[in-house]
Protein backbone atom coordinates (compact mmCIF):
# COMPACT_ATOMS: atom_id res chain seq x y z
CA UNK A 1 0.00 0.00 0.00
CA UNK A 2 1.44 3.41 -1.00
CA UNK A 3 1.60 6.51 1.21
CA UNK A 4 -0.96 9.27 1.23
CA UNK A 5 -1.23 11.50 -1.84
CA UNK A 6 -2.31 14.58 0.03
CA UNK A 7 -1.78 15.65 3.64
CA UNK A 8 -4.04 18.27 5.23
CA UNK A 9 -2.64 19.89 8.35
CA UNK A 10 -5.11 21.69 10.56
CA UNK A 11 -4.87 23.93 13.54
CA UNK A 12 -7.87 23.66 15.88
CA UNK A 13 -8.52 26.80 17.96
CA UNK A 14 -9.81 29.71 15.87
CA UNK A 15 -9.29 27.61 12.74
CA UNK A 16 -11.73 24.74 13.23
CA UNK A 17 -13.15 25.60 16.65
CA UNK A 18 -14.61 28.93 17.64
CA UNK A 19 -12.41 29.43 20.69
CA UNK A 20 -11.84 32.58 22.70
CA UNK A 21 -8.64 32.82 24.69
CA UNK A 22 -8.05 36.54 24.72
CA UNK A 23 -8.65 36.81 28.48
CA UNK A 24 -8.10 34.63 31.54
CA UNK A 25 -11.86 34.13 31.73
CA UNK A 26 -11.91 32.89 28.13
CA UNK A 27 -9.11 30.44 28.93
CA UNK A 28 -10.97 29.05 31.92
CA UNK A 29 -14.19 28.76 29.93
CA UNK A 30 -12.39 26.99 27.10
CA UNK A 31 -10.78 24.57 29.57
CA UNK A 32 -14.03 23.54 31.29
CA UNK A 33 -16.24 23.35 28.18
CA UNK A 34 -17.58 19.93 27.29
CA UNK A 35 -17.23 18.48 23.80
CA UNK A 36 -20.89 19.29 23.11
CA UNK A 37 -20.35 22.93 24.13
CA UNK A 38 -17.52 23.46 21.67
CA UNK A 39 -18.55 25.07 18.39
CA UNK A 40 -16.95 24.57 15.00
CA UNK A 41 -17.07 27.41 12.46
CA UNK A 42 -19.92 27.05 9.97
CA UNK A 43 -18.83 24.86 7.08
CA UNK A 44 -15.60 23.68 8.72
CA UNK A 45 -17.04 20.30 9.71
CA UNK A 46 -18.34 19.51 6.21
CA UNK A 47 -15.01 20.59 4.75
CA UNK A 48 -12.95 18.43 7.11
CA UNK A 49 -15.29 15.49 6.55
CA UNK A 50 -14.97 15.90 2.78
CA UNK A 51 -11.18 15.99 3.01
CA UNK A 52 -11.13 12.93 5.24
CA UNK A 53 -13.45 10.94 2.97
CA UNK A 54 -10.65 9.83 0.64
CA UNK A 55 -8.27 7.01 1.61
CA UNK A 56 -5.54 8.90 -0.19
CA UNK A 57 -5.85 11.83 2.18
CA UNK A 58 -4.20 12.13 5.58
CA UNK A 59 -5.53 14.54 8.19
CA UNK A 60 -3.02 15.81 10.74
CA UNK A 61 -4.07 18.15 13.51
CA UNK A 62 -1.43 20.25 15.27
CA UNK A 63 -2.93 22.46 17.95
CA UNK A 64 -1.52 24.73 20.62
CA UNK A 65 -4.19 23.51 23.07
CA UNK A 66 -2.77 21.75 26.13
CA UNK A 67 -2.48 17.99 25.89
CA UNK A 68 -4.74 17.69 28.95
CA UNK A 69 -7.61 18.65 26.65
CA UNK A 70 -7.05 15.73 24.32
CA UNK A 71 -10.06 13.71 25.45
CA UNK A 72 -12.56 16.57 25.15
CA UNK A 73 -11.18 17.70 21.78
CA UNK A 74 -11.14 14.14 20.46
CA UNK A 75 -14.72 13.74 21.65
CA UNK A 76 -15.70 16.92 19.82
CA UNK A 77 -14.13 15.68 16.59
CA UNK A 78 -15.90 12.34 17.05
CA UNK A 79 -19.21 14.13 17.63
CA UNK A 80 -18.67 16.03 14.39
CA UNK A 81 -17.84 12.82 12.52
CA UNK A 82 -14.37 14.08 11.66
CA UNK A 83 -11.67 11.44 11.24
CA UNK A 84 -7.99 12.22 11.67
CA UNK A 85 -4.72 10.37 11.38
CA UNK A 86 -2.56 12.38 13.74
CA UNK A 87 -3.40 14.66 16.64
CA UNK A 88 -0.61 16.68 18.28
CA UNK A 89 -1.22 18.91 21.31
CA UNK A 90 1.10 21.05 23.37
CA UNK A 91 2.45 19.65 26.62
CA UNK A 92 2.17 22.79 28.67
CA UNK A 93 2.32 20.97 32.04
CA UNK A 94 5.82 19.86 31.16
CA UNK A 95 6.72 23.43 30.19
CA UNK A 96 5.45 24.69 33.57
CA UNK A 97 7.26 21.92 35.45
CA UNK A 98 10.51 22.90 33.75
CA UNK A 99 9.90 26.60 34.43
CA UNK A 100 9.78 27.37 30.69
CA UNK A 101 7.08 30.00 30.83
CA UNK A 102 8.11 31.56 27.52
CA UNK A 103 7.20 28.27 25.86
CA UNK A 104 3.61 28.48 27.13
CA UNK A 105 2.75 31.15 24.61
CA UNK A 106 5.41 30.45 22.00
CA UNK A 107 3.98 29.38 18.67
CA UNK A 108 6.87 29.01 16.25
CA UNK A 109 9.18 26.93 18.49
CA UNK A 110 6.28 24.57 19.19
CA UNK A 111 4.47 24.26 15.91
CA UNK A 112 7.32 24.26 13.38
CA UNK A 113 9.12 21.20 14.84
CA UNK A 114 5.74 19.47 15.26
CA UNK A 115 5.01 19.93 11.54
CA UNK A 116 8.49 18.87 10.46
CA UNK A 117 8.48 15.81 12.75
CA UNK A 118 5.08 14.81 11.42
CA UNK A 119 6.40 14.88 7.87
CA UNK A 120 9.64 13.16 8.83
CA UNK A 121 7.86 10.46 10.79
CA UNK A 122 5.34 9.28 8.22
CA UNK A 123 5.35 8.33 4.52
CA UNK A 124 5.84 11.64 2.69
CA UNK A 125 2.97 12.89 0.56
CA UNK A 126 3.56 14.79 -2.69
CA UNK A 127 0.93 17.38 -1.77
CA UNK A 128 0.15 19.26 1.42
CA UNK A 129 -2.51 21.85 2.27
CA UNK A 130 -2.27 23.72 5.56
CA UNK A 131 -5.06 25.39 7.53
CA UNK A 132 -4.46 28.03 10.20
CA UNK A 133 -5.76 31.36 11.41
CA UNK A 134 -4.79 34.98 11.87
CA UNK A 135 -4.77 34.89 15.67
CA UNK A 136 -1.17 33.80 16.05
CA UNK A 137 1.78 33.16 13.76
CA UNK A 138 0.29 30.46 11.52
CA UNK A 139 1.01 32.33 8.28
CA UNK A 140 4.72 32.63 9.17
CA UNK A 141 5.03 29.09 10.48
CA UNK A 142 3.33 27.50 7.48
CA UNK A 143 5.30 29.53 4.94
CA UNK A 144 8.53 28.77 6.75
CA UNK A 145 7.64 25.08 6.79
CA UNK A 146 6.88 25.19 3.05
CA UNK A 147 10.08 27.11 2.27
CA UNK A 148 12.21 24.73 4.36
CA UNK A 149 10.82 21.79 2.38
CA UNK A 150 11.61 23.43 -0.95
CA UNK A 151 15.03 24.54 0.25
CA UNK A 152 14.14 28.19 -0.34
CA UNK A 153 15.08 28.75 3.29
CA UNK A 154 18.36 26.94 3.92
CA UNK A 155 18.54 24.98 7.17
CA UNK A 156 21.54 27.18 8.03
CA UNK A 157 19.20 30.18 8.33
CA UNK A 158 16.71 28.35 10.51
CA UNK A 159 18.74 28.70 13.71
CA UNK A 160 18.74 32.49 13.34
CA UNK A 161 14.97 32.54 12.72
CA UNK A 162 14.29 30.33 15.74
CA UNK A 163 16.54 32.58 17.83
CA UNK A 164 14.38 35.55 16.81
CA UNK A 165 11.34 33.48 17.84
CA UNK A 166 12.82 33.15 21.36
CA UNK A 167 13.14 29.36 21.09
CA UNK A 168 15.02 27.47 23.82
CA UNK A 169 18.31 25.81 22.71
CA UNK A 170 16.86 22.29 22.85
CA UNK A 171 13.87 23.41 20.77
CA UNK A 172 16.28 24.80 18.17
CA UNK A 173 18.24 21.57 18.10
CA UNK A 174 15.04 19.52 17.79
CA UNK A 175 13.73 21.68 14.95
CA UNK A 176 17.00 21.59 13.03
CA UNK A 177 17.08 17.82 13.35
CA UNK A 178 13.49 17.46 12.13
CA UNK A 179 14.15 19.85 9.23
CA UNK A 180 17.09 17.68 8.10
CA UNK A 181 15.01 14.48 8.31
CA UNK A 182 11.82 15.74 6.62
CA UNK A 183 11.43 14.67 2.98
CA UNK A 184 11.96 17.69 0.76
CA UNK A 185 10.05 18.99 -2.23
CA UNK A 186 7.60 21.65 -3.37
CA UNK A 187 4.78 19.89 -1.57
CA UNK A 188 2.87 22.73 0.10
CA UNK A 189 0.59 23.95 -2.64
CA UNK A 190 -1.88 25.84 -0.53
CA UNK A 191 -2.04 27.57 2.84
CA UNK A 192 -5.50 28.66 4.02
CA UNK A 193 -5.66 31.25 6.78
CA UNK A 194 -9.02 31.67 8.48
CA UNK A 195 -9.50 35.36 9.30
CA UNK A 196 -10.94 34.93 12.77
CA UNK A 197 -9.86 38.46 13.72
CA UNK A 198 -11.10 39.79 10.40
CA UNK A 199 -7.56 41.05 9.75
CA UNK A 200 -7.01 43.09 6.59
CA UNK A 201 -6.10 40.77 3.75
CA UNK A 202 -3.49 43.05 2.16
CA UNK A 203 -0.61 42.23 4.56
CA UNK A 204 -0.98 38.54 3.66
CA UNK A 205 -0.09 39.27 0.04
CA UNK A 206 3.59 39.32 0.95
CA UNK A 207 3.38 35.54 1.48
CA UNK A 208 2.53 35.05 -2.18
CA UNK A 209 -0.40 33.46 -3.99
CA UNK A 210 -0.05 30.08 -2.26
CA UNK A 211 -1.44 31.61 0.96
CA UNK A 212 -5.12 32.53 0.83
CA UNK A 213 -6.76 34.39 3.71
CA UNK A 214 -10.44 33.42 3.94
CA UNK A 215 -13.31 34.98 5.84
CA UNK A 216 -15.24 31.72 6.00
CA UNK A 217 -15.21 28.08 4.95
CA UNK A 218 -17.18 28.59 1.77
CA UNK A 219 -14.22 30.60 0.54
CA UNK A 220 -11.88 27.82 1.68
CA UNK A 221 -14.01 25.28 -0.20
CA UNK A 222 -13.95 27.44 -3.35
CA UNK A 223 -10.15 27.62 -3.21
CA UNK A 224 -9.89 23.86 -2.77
CA UNK A 225 -12.32 23.34 -5.65
CA UNK A 226 -10.08 25.51 -7.83
CA UNK A 227 -7.13 23.41 -6.66
CA UNK A 228 -8.93 20.25 -7.78
CA UNK A 229 -9.13 18.92 -4.23
CA UNK A 230 -12.91 19.19 -3.72
CA UNK A 231 -15.74 18.40 -6.09
CA UNK A 232 -18.61 20.81 -6.78
CA UNK A 233 -20.87 18.49 -4.79
CA UNK A 234 -18.56 18.74 -1.76
CA UNK A 235 -18.51 22.54 -2.04
CA UNK A 236 -22.30 22.44 -2.09
CA UNK A 237 -22.35 20.52 1.20
CA UNK A 238 -20.04 23.06 2.83
CA UNK A 239 -22.42 25.81 1.65
CA UNK A 240 -25.46 23.94 2.99
CA UNK A 241 -23.89 23.54 6.42
CA UNK A 242 -23.22 27.28 6.47
CA UNK A 243 -26.79 28.11 5.47
CA UNK A 244 -28.09 25.74 8.13
CA UNK A 245 -26.01 27.58 10.75
CA UNK A 246 -28.22 30.63 10.00
CA UNK A 247 -25.10 32.79 10.03
CA UNK A 248 -24.98 32.79 6.23
CA UNK A 249 -27.46 32.85 3.40
CA UNK A 250 -27.23 32.65 -0.38
CA UNK A 251 -26.44 36.33 -0.61
CA UNK A 252 -23.52 36.28 1.83
CA UNK A 253 -22.15 33.16 0.18
CA UNK A 254 -22.34 34.85 -3.23
CA UNK A 255 -20.63 37.90 -1.73
CA UNK A 256 -17.91 35.64 -0.30
CA UNK A 257 -17.27 34.31 -3.79
CA UNK A 258 -17.16 37.83 -5.22
CA UNK A 259 -14.65 38.80 -2.53
CA UNK A 260 -12.29 35.99 -3.55
CA UNK A 261 -12.55 36.90 -7.24
CA UNK A 262 -11.94 40.58 -6.48
CA UNK A 263 -8.86 39.73 -4.45
CA UNK A 264 -7.48 37.63 -7.29
CA UNK A 265 -7.78 34.41 -5.31
CA UNK A 266 -10.30 32.71 -7.60
CA UNK A 267 -10.66 32.94 -11.39
CA UNK A 268 -14.04 34.07 -12.69
CA UNK A 269 -14.07 31.14 -15.12
CA UNK A 270 -13.55 28.66 -12.30
CA UNK A 271 -16.32 30.30 -10.29
CA UNK A 272 -18.64 30.01 -13.28
CA UNK A 273 -17.62 26.41 -13.90
CA UNK A 274 -18.41 25.64 -10.26
CA UNK A 275 -21.89 27.14 -10.66
CA UNK A 276 -22.49 24.79 -13.62
CA UNK A 277 -21.13 21.68 -11.91
CA UNK A 278 -22.91 22.46 -8.66
CA UNK A 279 -26.14 22.78 -10.68
CA UNK A 280 -25.59 19.28 -12.04
CA UNK A 281 -24.84 18.01 -8.54
CA UNK A 282 -27.98 19.68 -7.20
CA UNK A 283 -30.06 18.16 -9.99
CA UNK A 284 -28.68 14.72 -9.19
CA UNK A 285 -30.01 14.90 -5.65
CA UNK A 286 -27.64 16.91 -3.46
CA UNK A 287 -30.39 19.44 -2.79
CA UNK A 288 -33.19 16.88 -2.48
CA UNK A 289 -35.71 17.71 0.24
CA UNK A 290 -34.29 21.23 0.61
CA UNK A 291 -37.50 23.08 -0.16
CA UNK A 292 -36.28 25.94 2.08
CA UNK A 293 -33.93 26.91 -0.73
CA UNK A 294 -34.88 28.47 -4.07
CA UNK A 295 -34.45 26.36 -7.25
CA UNK A 296 -30.79 25.91 -8.10
CA UNK A 297 -31.19 27.94 -11.30
CA UNK A 298 -32.05 30.93 -9.09
CA UNK A 299 -29.05 30.29 -6.86
CA UNK A 300 -26.77 29.92 -9.86
CA UNK A 301 -28.14 33.12 -11.41
CA UNK A 302 -27.48 35.01 -8.19
CA UNK A 303 -23.87 33.85 -8.12
CA UNK A 304 -23.33 34.81 -11.76
CA UNK A 305 -24.96 38.17 -11.12
CA UNK A 306 -22.61 38.83 -8.22
CA UNK A 307 -19.65 38.33 -10.55
CA UNK A 308 -21.21 40.51 -13.21
CA UNK A 309 -21.56 43.32 -10.65
CA UNK A 310 -17.79 43.65 -10.59
CA UNK A 311 -17.92 45.02 -14.13
CA UNK A 312 -14.75 44.64 -16.11
CA UNK A 313 -12.60 45.26 -13.05
CA UNK A 314 -9.67 42.86 -13.03
CA UNK A 315 -8.45 41.25 -9.84
CA UNK A 316 -5.54 42.63 -7.85
CA UNK A 317 -2.26 41.61 -9.44
CA UNK A 318 0.74 39.91 -7.85
CA UNK A 319 3.97 41.84 -7.85
CA UNK A 320 6.09 40.11 -5.23
CA UNK A 321 5.73 36.44 -6.15
CA UNK A 322 9.48 35.78 -6.35
CA UNK A 323 10.52 37.89 -3.39
CA UNK A 324 12.09 35.85 -0.60
CA UNK A 325 10.50 36.37 2.80
CA UNK A 326 12.61 37.87 5.57
CA UNK A 327 11.49 35.51 8.33
CA UNK A 328 13.53 37.16 11.07
CA UNK A 329 11.78 40.47 10.37
CA UNK A 330 8.39 38.71 10.19
CA UNK A 331 8.98 36.96 13.52
CA UNK A 332 10.03 40.24 15.14
CA UNK A 333 6.94 41.96 13.74
CA UNK A 334 4.66 39.19 14.98
CA UNK A 335 6.26 39.28 18.42
CA UNK A 336 5.80 43.05 18.60
CA UNK A 337 2.17 42.79 17.40
CA UNK A 338 1.40 40.21 20.08
CA UNK A 339 2.88 42.46 22.78
CA UNK A 340 0.80 45.41 21.55
CA UNK A 341 -2.37 43.29 21.54
CA UNK A 342 -1.65 42.06 25.08
CA UNK A 343 -1.17 45.62 26.31
CA UNK A 344 -4.39 46.68 24.58
CA UNK A 345 -6.51 44.13 26.47
Amino acid sequence: MGGPKHVFRWDLDKTYLRTEFDSFRDLVKSAIETAADKQAYPGATSLLRALGASDEHRICIVSGSPSQMRSVLAAKLALDGVRYDEFVLKNNLRNIARGRFRALRAQIPYKLPALLESRAGSPPAPHETLFGDDAEADAIIYCLYADLLTGRVPIGDLERILGAARAYPDEIARTLDAARRAAKGPVVGRIVIHLDRRSPTMPFRRYGSRLVPVFNYFQAALVLYADGVLSARQVLFVALEMIDSRQFDLSTLATSMQDLVRRGRLDREIALRLAEEAGEAAASGALAERDDLPPFETISTRFRERLRQLGAAGPLGWTNEDEALDYVALVDEEHHGRKVRRRGR
Binding site: R198, P200, T201, F215, T255, Q309, L310
Partner: peptide, 29 residues
Amino acid sequence: EIVLVGDAVELGKILPRLRHDGARVRVHH
Protein backbone atom coordinates in the same frame (compact mmCIF):
# COMPACT_ATOMS: atom_id res chain seq x y z
CA GLU B 1 -24.87 43.21 4.19
CA ILE B 2 -23.35 46.30 2.65
CA VAL B 3 -23.15 47.01 -1.07
CA LEU B 4 -20.48 49.50 -2.11
CA VAL B 5 -21.45 51.15 -5.38
CA GLY B 6 -18.62 52.82 -7.24
CA ASP B 7 -15.46 52.16 -9.21
CA ALA B 8 -14.86 48.46 -8.56
CA VAL B 9 -11.13 48.76 -9.21
CA GLU B 10 -10.70 51.57 -6.68
CA LEU B 11 -12.90 49.90 -4.10
CA GLY B 12 -11.06 46.63 -4.63
CA LYS B 13 -7.80 48.34 -3.75
CA ILE B 14 -9.10 49.92 -0.54
CA LEU B 15 -11.02 47.03 1.03
CA PRO B 16 -8.04 44.66 1.45
CA ARG B 17 -6.32 47.28 3.62
CA LEU B 18 -9.18 47.32 6.12
CA ARG B 19 -10.59 44.99 8.74
CA HIS B 20 -13.97 43.90 7.47
CA ASP B 21 -16.14 40.86 6.85
CA GLY B 22 -15.72 39.76 3.25
CA ALA B 23 -19.04 37.91 3.33
CA ARG B 24 -20.90 41.11 4.14
CA VAL B 25 -19.31 43.78 1.98
CA ARG B 26 -19.83 43.48 -1.74
CA VAL B 27 -18.94 45.71 -4.63
CA HIS B 28 -21.21 46.84 -7.43
CA HIS B 29 -19.41 48.62 -10.22
